[in-house]
């Protein structure tokens, strides 16, 4: 598959994810092994009612989606992937009212696993809200007992 065709498919797939749509995520940039997705501020995603800060879970969803898009867009990774592991570190609360932007990079792909790292920030781009690292399946979705993320 040529690169342009693959980028088109990844874009199409990412934009069609129902839960990402529910969180109003927008695919800003898609490269070869990296992606940028934004999520607007929305009162429905608030986790702390006294401050109006977005729930960590919504940030996790943004980072997982961006990580998956980065993995799929990598030239050595297949179009089908599933998250094996995701670790998120929260540096600070996101500023209420501001959108959150996540940039993810797939930095290594083996025959079976893709590794990614991501950073999320609000309007203050030099001061991250959260960072994430994750491992994704990269075996093309072949069902096997050794592939926990594969369809059963």
């Amino acid at each position: 598959m040529d690169r342009k065709k693959k980028a088109q498919l990844v874009r199409h797939f990412t934009e069609a994810i129902p839960y990402s749509k529910a969180l109003s995520m927008y695919l800003e940039e898609l490269g070869e092994g990296d992606a940028v997705i934004s999520m607007p501020y929305d009162a429905r995603f608030v986790g702390d009612p006294t401050t109006g800060v977005i729930h960590g879970g919504a940030v996790s969803a943004l980072m997982d989606t961006t990580g998956g898009a980065a993995v799929m867009s990598h030239p050595d990774a297949p179009l089908v992937t599933a998250t094996l592991d995701l670790r998120i570190d929260y540096m600070r609360a996101a500023t209420p009212g501001q959108r959150i932007v996540c940039r993810a990079e797939c930095y290594h792909v083996t025959r079976s696993v893709a590794f990614m790292r991501a950073v999320a920030h609000d309007d203050d781009a030099d001061n991250p809200i959260a960072t994430a690292t994750g491992a994704f399946t990269a075996d093309g979705g072949k069902p096997s007992v050794a592939t926990p993320g594969a369809p059963t």
Partner: peptide, 27 residues
């Protein structure tokens, strides 16, 4: 609900929904 889907082809619940569900339960 259908809005929780992350991969419509399988279909499977979004990894971010699972992460959110676990974090909400913990808090």
């Amino acid at each position: 609900t259908e809005t929780l889907i992350g991969n419509p082809a399988l279909p499977a619940i979004h990894g971010g929904v699972t992460a959110s569900f676990l974090e909400v339960t913990s808090i």
